[in-house]
Structure formats: C-alpha cells, structure tokens
C-alpha cells in the first residue's frame, strides 16, 4: 500500500512537471478523471505523459482497445497500470 501511495505521488509530480501544470501535485485528486472534467488534459497531454512514463518507468503506454484511454481514467488507475507493467 505504501508503494502504491508513493508511486501515485511520484506520478503526480511527473505529470505536473511534464505538462507544466499550475496545479500542485498533491492537489490532484487521485480518483478524479485526468481528461475532460477533472484535470482537463487532452490528447497532446496523453502523448507527453506516454513519453515521460516511457523514460521514467521503461514501458510503453498503448491504445489497445482502450480508445477512451481507460488507464488514464484517474491518477490512481494510471498508477496501478504502471505498477503492473513497469520495468524501471
């Protein structure tokens, strides 16, 4: 559980830095949608996050059939996805 929480915090920092967001990392609601309503990210941001994640965690995000970017559903969902797939 501690690992998950710290990965979540680390990821929040990564997203804020990669996207030059004004939000503080700790202000990102881990359960809120990253796209649209919540943090308001868009497809340009999705590519930036994919790039940052590949550099930091050594694995590639992909579309598969998740056309609505399901793994980008929330910070928590993305964090869990990275936890499962990370190599770095």
């Amino acid at each position: 559980m501690t690992t998950t929480l710290s990965l979540e915090a680390e990821l929040a920092r990564l997203i804020v830095d990669a996207l030059h967001l004004e939000t503080a990392p700790e202000e990102i609601d881990p359960e809120a949608p990253l796209f649209g309503e919540g943090l308001g990210l868009d497809s340009i941001d999705a590519l930036e996050i994919a790039l940052a994640v590949s550099k930091r965690y050594g694995f590639q995000l992909r579309s598969d059939d998740e056309r609505n970017h399901r793994i980008f559903g929330s910070l928590r969902a993305l964090s869990a996805h990275i936890e499962t797939h990370r190599t770095g």
């Binding site: 999705a46 590519l47 994919a50 590639q60 992909r62 579309s63 056309r67």
Partner: peptide
C-alpha cells in the same frame, strides 16, 4: 487502427507488409 502512442505505431507497422508509409504529426 487505433494507433496513437509510439508503441501503437511500432506494432501496427510491424504487423503490416512492406513498403510502409507512416502518416503522422510533429507531436507523435
């Protein structure tokens, strides 16, 4: 498709016969 992320692009291209043309954007 769908093809959006770098890994999608690599996989889609690898699954198709040559010659291969990639049509994309500066961001990608």
């Amino acid at each position: 498709g769908p093809v959006f992320y770098p890994s999608d692009i690599a996989e889609a291209l690898a699954a198709l016969p040559a010659p291969r043309l990639l049509v994309t954007t500066p961001l990608q």
